[in-house]
């Protein structure tokens, strides 16, 4: 699964730490999501979409092998 969190974060000019504080997770979790080591829960995905003001489908994209 691909995601555009790093891009969205850059657009909003947020650091990983700031984003983590906004959605109540650790900075390492944001880092793991950005590097595709961890797929977040639906709740976390919705929180991310709320922070960035975009649809979840714009944040996460399924790959062919998913």
């Amino acid at each position: 699964m691909n995601n555009t969190i790093k891009i969205q974060r850059a657009i909003k000019n947020l650091t990983q730490e700031e984003l983590a504080n906004l959605i109540g997770v650790s900075r390492q979790t944001i880092n793991s999501i950005e590097n595709n080591r961890y797929i977040p829960s639906t709740v976390l995905a919705l929180k991310l979409s709320k922070v960035f003001g975009v649809n979840v489908n714009d944040l996460f994209e399924l790959e062919d092998d998913d």
């Binding site: 109540g24 997770v25 650790s26 390492q28 979790t29 793991s32 961890y38 977040p40 829960s41 709740v43 976390l44």
Partner: peptide
Amino acid sequence: KTEDELTTQ
């Protein structure tokens, strides 16, 4: 201290 859904997993 930084417990979240990833640490639970």
